[in-house]
């Protein structure tokens, strides 16, 4: 660390300037503005008054809060499913696969992240639609008489969300499971522990930090997702980010849209905060 002198003080100021400009102009002030706009009501053309009307509207209009609740519940479900599907895979990569197989499986898990979400979702559209691959395979096997439409429903949304989220669950899980000493598991077997008991008593408690940080990231990304629900869910996907988009772009009701935006931000932050509290982790350690 350098000694403080006039020169270093100047350096700090020069380095601080771009940082604070970035933060103020693109993050802090825009969010303050968003909050202000969400708290005003248009009473006459170009005349606004302070009001909670936009937030009241959210609770009064069933469509709004139901969409919000639906988005939250579907996101929780997607998170749980991602964990359940991803855990055995992570365990396989961390504890069973060895050498080349291990590193190539891990890289394979990263693959979808590198490909645009739009392309991934498009892939699912080709697979699931009426004239798609899965429908074709089912007919070929004789399991279906005619084309089967699997797109545009909640299950399709869920498949897409879990797919998109998988990487963010597998990476933290593999790294915590990797740090678990094999000797502990061997010792537990030697002492006569069953696989289930070992999983419950040793593996899962050790992997807990990875489970929590994976779940936080997956939940946050799912909640804020827009592409997957709109493309795979069709017109009735009822995702909350879609409501925000509609208010802003289609209806041009920026006050209402801002209020929705803030509600989503609150929910997302609350989940992150609770998750960090539960594991006694700091944000700095989770984002890596």
């Amino acid at each position: 660390m350098e000694r403080v002198s006039a020169g270093t003080k100047l350096t700090v100021l020069v380095l601080f300037a771009p940082f604070i400009l970035w933060m103020l102009l693109l993050v802090i002030l825009p969010h303050i503005d968003l909050l202000t706009i969400s708290l005003r009501e248009r009473v006459a053309p170009r005349v606004y008054e302070f009001s909670f009307k936009n937030y009241m509207e959210f609770f009064v209009e069933p469509l709004y809060w139901r969409t919000f609740a639906r988005t939250a519940i579907m996101s929780i479900l997607a998170t749980v499913l991602t964990l359940i599907i991803g855990f055995p895979i992570s365990y396989y990569i961390a504890k069973i696969a060895r050498g080349r197989l291990k590193s190539s499986l891990f890289l394979l898990c990263m693959l979808p992240f590198w490909v645009s979400e739009l392309v991934r979702t498009f892939g699912w559209m080709i697979l699931l639609r009426e004239s798609g691959i899965i429908s074709g395979v089912l007919q070929w096997l004789g399991l279906a008489d005619g084309p089967v439409e699997m797109l545009y429903n909640d299950a399709a949304i869920m498949v897409g969300l879990v797919y998109t989220s998988m990487l963010f669950m597998v990476v933290p899980l593999v790294s915590t499971l990797d740090s678990l000493d094999d000797g502990l598991i061997e010792a537990a077997y030697d002492l006569g522990g069953s696989t289930i008991a070992i999983l419950r008593e040793i593996v899962i408690p050790h992997a807990m930090p990875g489970i929590v940080s994976g779940c936080i990231v997956v939940f946050m990304l799912t909640l804020g997702n827009y592409l997957t629900p709109t493309l795979l869910g069709g017109k009735d996907s009822l995702w909350f980010t879609e409501q925000i988009y509609n208010q802003f772009i289609t209806r041009f009701n920026w006050e209402q849209g801002s209020a929705f935006g803030f509600l989503l931000l609150l929910l997302s932050s609350a989940i992150i905060w609770t998750g960090l509290r539960l594991t006694r982790q700091r944000l700095q350690d989770t984002i890596k």
Binding site: F19, M23, L26, V27, I28, L29, P30, H31, D33, L34, I37, M220, L223, G224, Y226, T241, I244, Y245, F248, W254, G257, S258, G261, L264, L265, S268, S269, I272, L283, Q284, I287
Partner: peptide
């Protein structure tokens, strides 16, 4: 902490806040 914030704000909300501002 402030520097890390943009990673935990949903992209849609970053978009609308900059639009509004």
């Amino acid at each position: 902490m402030l520097m890390l914030m943009p990673l935990v704000i949903p992209g849609v909300i970053l978009g609308i806040s900059i639009l509004v501002f």
